[in-house]
Design a protein around this nucleic acid. Structure first.
Lengths: 335, 335
DNA sequence: GCAATCGATTAAAACGATTCAACGCCGTCC
DNA sequence: GGACGGCGTTGAATCGTTTTAATCGATTGC
């Protein structure tokens, strides 16, 4: 039924070792045997068995990537960057979507470990520190995405979230707003707390400014819409005059709620800024101000770091790379 | 260095066969040996080698999914549907992004074949018929996504694109527009030509109506913006009064060009409708009318079909499932 | 002319989990 | 008391590829 090197070898009248050599180092084989073997491969429709290769090699030729939300363009852009860089190195990226769920996160990590991947890139939920430490002890290098390790134990590629949060809030203050609200959550995500911390700092520096926190269960359009509708239910005077959303999906949800049932509150009554600068932000009902992260570059760089750790072995030094975010001003904050 | 069943067996003072049984059918092993073996697994930090399992099993526990564009929410929604259904069956989904590139498409198919996946779900570029036929002959069942096979040789899950195109164009005609333009491409995508064909039909039924075709190189926001800018460069009288874009990404690009450099042409001068009804469509500058496809359901159903083909073997009958699209009217067509 | 060298090829030993026929042990039945 | 059956366990074979040491011819060097 299934055709293996054995059959190929028989048809080409060579040994299985030679078939292997033809596929992996043809320069070590005489030209006419190469031709004969390749002909045999073609006529039999031989496809080599990756499981057997991996078993022998001890490692697979892929790296695992666990993201919080594949529906978020920030992560698909990041994945694209990682994939391109990995392809250059002859590796494949296995994409896992944890969807903010620790169980799914663990399931993917288990899977990747059983697959003996070259390494894991992960944007972890909460404090996965010991889980990841065990993973690495067993020989799978790991790089954190979009977040630094608390004790510098892991390599990481991230963006300066406190600075991004500061920049966003500062911008809202600079256009004259004082009653700020932060929409974001869950707080188990370090990205959320860091951005909030930065915003708090900016508000604290501005006398008379306040910051209200509206916590959401996820960083999704739906949650944003719910938050926006909650605000809408308030008396007009009780509403903030500016909103900083922890990411663009939330911001777009908020925008839908505030600007799409007849009324138009953004940007006149309420200024709005998001985070990530996804491609859809500029095409929103009111083009969305945002804080841009270099998503593809993050993915690209993370693979570089991972490959370095993988080659240097267990005692590789761990490097934290931090990119700076960039403020993008559009109509939603009066730009 | 690496710990295998052998070491576990030694520590637990049992044979390797028993260790395997503990992991795969614990009910066949006496309770105290189960406990002893599990203790050994824990203390040694044993993680089973998936390559070895697969080699023995002959098949991997995953299915391959090749999509045209991971950046398109339609496909990530579809992937989510597939993933959920696959998870219920204990399978993993490997997601490959062909990015409209036949070379990448082939690379992923090769990879999946070497991995001995349970089957392949693919939204193919152009006519991959013989490539896919070979794949299936070698034992990998295949289901087409978002497109039917020309000769009913493959199972498929798709949406009635001609009907969708007809519905979209008919809607534009019903709101009184007559000079229609279709923006889409490349024509190698059957989705594009089918939607266009449907639109042509609707226009032909309407005396005095015309349909101009503006071909794009891809179904992306960027290409849409380029098309929009080209229209903008024309004299106002030479512009169409309605545009049907082959998908929402294109439509949003067109919208950006037509409504965001000071002027506002949509929907007054030009009505605009997209296709897919991605989540961002309703949050666009002008909320976008669209033709909705049941993306998650497509992915879900495709996995069902695949599993059925896989169990029924080579002589399984091939089923074509076609869902009906749904017109969603929003502000961009005056809704 | 014999040894050394070189290139091409081979045969066999891995890799690690699963499976299956065989085996030992114990209690039951006649 | 011996045959039988059932349960739990074992050991070896197996999956398909890669790799290494060994082999075989043929050529070169002296």
């Amino acid at each position: 039924m299934t055709v293996s090197v054995r059959e190929v070898a028989a048809l080409a009248k060579v040994s299985v070792g030679t078939v292997s050599n033809v596929m992996n180092r043809p320069e070590k084989v005489s030209p006419d045997t190469v031709e004969r073997v390749q002909a045999a491969i073609r006529t039999l429709g031989f496809v080599r068995n990756d499981a057997a290769r991996q078993l022998r090699a001890g490692r697979s030729r892929s790296i695992g990537l666990v993201v919080l939300d594949v529906g978020n363009p920030f992560f698909t852009d990041l994945a694209r960057g990682a994939e391109n860089r990995a392809a250059e190195a002859g590796l494949t990226v296995l994409l896992g979507n944890s969807d903010d769920d620790e169980e799914r996160e663990n399931a993917y990590l288990d899977l990747f470990e059983e697959q003996r991947v070259h390494g894991v890139l992960i944007s972890p939920i909460g404090d996965a520190a010991d889980r990841l430490a065990r993973l690495r002890e067993r020989g799978t290098p790991t790089v954190l995405l979009d977040r630094q390790s608390d004790n510098h134990n892991f390599s990481s590629v991230s963006v300066d979230d406190p600075a991004g949060g500061y920049t966003a809030a500062r911008h809202l203050l600079e256009i004259g707003r004082r009653r700020l609200a932060f929409v974001g959550g869950p707080v188990s995500l370090q990205q959320v707390t860091d951005r909030l911390a930065g915003a708090r700092l900016a508000v604290a520096e501005q006398p008379g400014a306040t910051l209200e926190v509206i916590e959401t269960a996820a960083l999704s359009v739906l949650e944003g819409r719910a938050a926006g509708e909650a605000l809408l239910a308030r008396a007009a005077t009780a509403r903030p005059d500016a909103i900083f959303a922890a990411n663009d999906l939330l911001a777009m949800g908020v925008l839908q709620a505030l600007n799409m049932n007849g009324q138009v509150l953004v940007p006149g009554d309420i200024a709005l800024i998001g985070y990530d600068d996804i491609a859809f932000a500029s095409a929103a009902v009111v083009p969305l101000s945002s804080v841009r992260q270099p998503s593809e570059l993050i993915g690209h760089t993370a693979v570089d770091l991972l490959l370095r750790e993988a080659t240097e072995g267990a005692d590789a030094e761990h490097e934290q790379i931090v990119f700076q975010p960039e403020l993008i001003v559009r109509a939603s904050t009066g730009g």
